[in-house]
Each structure stands twice: as structure tokens, then as C-alpha cells.
């Protein structure tokens, strides 16, 4: 089987920010850690999510990969290159966490502008913009000025410009921010459709349920440090537990009303059931315990 190549390789990434607050500087705090000694790879075609609390360094990592920040130390290779050339950006799409647009400009003018920056052919430009507007539910708003758009609508505009060039590598920083449930569903569908087409997606988001549904691998970031990277599906399979409902107390079982519940790992389940049988203990139910990403997040980060 052909090996999937790494589209991004980050090694020992370190980024610090100068503290500009004069009072903090007087106290001796000159620099703040953005990220320290972060290393990871992103494989071609996968959805790689980075999760962490506010200020954990998620956006810093994205900006560093995109070449927007100068690094203190470490190396980043994108498309096997140490420095992205202008041509490489034809294959990249980016949705920043906060994006401001000239509010007095019309939506269509803004999209045409971004399409021109990607040097998209005039005829194809029209077709792709129409297609994206259709997907993003922006149709009919083409000639509206952006000042009349809600936060959610502007987020859709941001997403539209990020996928305009049908990128091979897509960076989405908080793509669900400000979106209603319907729009969130739409964005999730779009992300999955892009993945099907072979787009590699780096995702930063706070909404763990979305990460859980979308991601192939998840990186946990805490105060600038990479705690762990997991394949959530494999993790769930590997750490499969069962909750067995029984009629009497056993070691470490939990009582709920007049029933007792005992957690058993998948490997020990058979032996445990045999043991119950031998002891003549009544079994009411056996249920697979679902580990949620939220549980795991709390365990790893907090």
C-alpha cells in the first residue's frame, strides 16, 4: 500500500510574543509564550484538528505554518518545502479567526477581488463564485454591501473566500463561530465534501462535537504545549468500556436507586460475565460506554 505523505511537518516550533503592556514589562514580564517545542505532522487528505483553551496557541500554529509569523526556532515544511513560495499559495485556502472586510464594498466585488488574486479565469470565476454562493446560502446577496451582513453571514463570506481556489490545503480557524445550527451543518457538509475531494484540512475550533464528527486526528494543545495527538476513532475502539447493570454490590460498583453499575473494559468483559454467572448475580443490562471528546478534553487539558 502506498504510504500517505505528510503535507505539513512541524518540528520544535517555538514562538514568543513581546508583551507591550508597560506595567507587565516593569514587573519583568517581557515575553509571552505563544507555542513552545511543538512538533507534529499532517497527512495528505486528512482532517487534522487542534483543540485547546483560549490562548493555547492554536492560531499561532496556523499563522506560523502560513508564513505570517516569524519563528523563534523550529522548522516548518509545507508541501515538503521549508519556505512557501508565491505559487504554493495557489493551493492554500485560509479562514482567519477574526476577519474584517471593507464594509462599504459589495459582496460580489469582494469575491471577484479574491478570485482575481488567485488569478482565476474570468469565465470559470463566475461559475465558481455562483456555485459557492449557492452552497453557502449567499445567493441573492451578491449586490449587498457587507455592512448589512450579520456576523454569521460574514463568517460564510470568510468561508467562501477560503474555498474559492479549491485548495489542496485548507486552514479553518474557528469556522463555526457565529453560525446558526443550520449553517453549522452546512459547513460540516462542505468540510466533508472537500475531504472527499482530497483536500487536507487543518481545523481550529472550540466546538468539540464538530471536531469529534469531522476529524481524523486531534491534537490537544495546552498553554503552548502539544499534550497529545490522537486518532479519536481508534482511541475509542482501544479504550472500549462496558457498563454492566447488576443486582448487588461488587467492588467499585456504583449504586443508582436499587441497581448497581460496574464498569468493565472490553478485554475483561467475558471473564467478568462468567464470574457473575458463577456467583449467581443477576444481570439487567450491558451497555457500551461512549467516551466523548469532551471527557477526553477535560482529562487531558484541565
Amino acid at each position: 500500500m502506498a504510504q500517505i505523505r505528510n503535507i505539513i511537518e512541524v518540528r520544535n516550533l517555538k514562538k514568543e510574543y513581546k508583551i507591550t503592556d508597560i506595567f507587565k514589562r516593569l514587573k519583568g514580564d517581557k515575553k509571552k509564550v505563544g507555542v513552545s517545542d511543538v512538533s507534529f505532522d499532517v497527512k495528505e487528505g486528512e482532517i487534522f484538528s487542534i483543540i485547546g483553551l483560549n490562548g493555547a496557541g492554536k492560531t499561532t500554529i496556523m499563522k506560523s505554518i502560513l508564513g505570517l509569523l516569524k519563528l523563534e526556532s523550529g522548522t516548518i515544511r509545507v508541501f515538503s518545502k521549508k519556505k512557501l513560495s508565491r505559487k504554493d499559495y495557489y493551493k492554500i485556502g485560509y479562514l482567519p479567526e477574526i476577519s474584517y472586510y471593507p464594509k462599504e464594498v459589495k459582496l460580489m466585488d469582494l469575491m471577484q477581488y479574491y478570485a482575481e488574486l488567485y488569478n482565476i479565469d474570468k469565465v470559470y470565476r463566475k461559475k465558481i463564485i455562483e456555485e459557492i454562493f449557492e452552497i453557502m446560502d449567499l445567493k441573492g446577496r451578491e449586490n449587498d454591501r457587507l455592512e448589512n451582513f450579520s456576523k454569521g453571514m460574514l463568517q460564510k463570506v470568510g468561508l467562501a473566500q477560503a474555498v474559492l481556489n479549491e485548495p489542496k490545503l485548507l486552514f479553518l480557524d474557528e469556522p463555526m463561530s457565529g453560525l446558526d445550527p443550520l449553517a453549522r451543518r452546512m459547513v460540516m457538509d462542505l468540510i466533508l465534501r472537500l475531504k472527499k475531494k482530497g483536500t487536507t484540512i487543518i481545523l481550529n475550533t472550540h466546538i468539540l462535537s464538530d471536531v469529534e464528527k469531522l476529524s481524523d486526528r486531534i491534537a490537544f494543545l495546552d498553554k503552548g504545549e502539544m499534550k497529545t495527538i490522537i486518532d479519536f476513532n481508534s482511541y475509542q475502539k482501544k479504550n472500549e468500556n462496558y457498563v454492566v447493570e447488576i443486582d448487588r454490590y461488587l467492588d467499585k460498583s456504583i449504586k443508582l436507586q436499587d441497581r448497581y453499575f460496574k464498569k468493565v473494559s472490553k478485554d475483561d468483559l467475558n471473564d467478568f460475565l462468567n464470574d457473575l454467572n458463577d456467583k449467581n448475580i443477576k444481570i439487567y443490562s450491558i451497555e457500551k460506554e461512549n467516551i466523548t471528546l469532551e471527557q477526553l478534553f477535560l482529562e487531558k487539558i484541565i
Binding site: L68, R86, Y89, I92, S99, L117, F171
Partner: peptide, 8 residues
């Protein structure tokens, strides 16, 4: 950022 992350 929206401009500098394009081929510009």
C-alpha cells in the same frame, strides 16, 4: 491576512 495568504 486574507490577501497575504493568497499568491501575493
Amino acid at each position: 491576512y486574507l490577501v497575504l495568504t493568497k499568491p501575493v
